[in-house]
């Protein structure tokens, strides 16, 4: 069995996503939930990378205009850059809100956030 990076990476990213979602579903601590969300997001980002074919591809800089194939797909890279930025922003905002919430209530437990219910 040939375990190249190209075959392992999708599986690995899927594992990260599932791990992150599992963390979201089972952790009660808000910080841990944000960590899990970040892990899942990293998994998704790796998923994007894994489909660019970067192992055998060339850097997508058009040095010779006659060669139009064999490059790494540049679009997913651009996309994950955006999504990383968004992910960071979300995490930062979430942590800021959590910090403020913790200041007020002294709890980080997501199951105890029940001032608003029913």
């Amino acid at each position: 069995m040939n375990l190249s990076l190209e075959t392992v990476l999708p599986a690995f990213s899927l594992m990260l996503i599932l791990l992150g979602l599992w963390g979201v579903a089972t952790r009660k601590n808000l910080i841990k939930i944000f960590i899990s969300l970040s892990i899942a997001e990293t998994g998704v980002n790796l998923l994007y990378i894994s489909m660019t074919g970067f192992v055998h591809g060339k850097v997508p800089i058009l040095a010779d205009p006659t060669v139009t194939s064999g490059y790494v797909d540049p679009l997913p890279h651009a996309m994950i850059l955006t999504s990383i930025v968004i992910g960071t922003a979300v995490t930062a905002l979430g942590l800021a809100l959590t910090a403020r919430y913790h200041e007020r209530t002294g709890t980080l437990n997501v199951t105890k956030m029940k001032e608003l219910k029913n």
Binding site: G20, L37, V90
Partner: peptide, 17 residues
């Protein structure tokens, strides 16, 4: 409102993933 915001953020994050 903080609680609402955190809940909104958590739900939204799941959606975006």
């Amino acid at each position: 409102s903080l609680e609402g915001a955190i809940k909104y953020l958590l739900a939204g994050s799941i959606a975006s993933i």
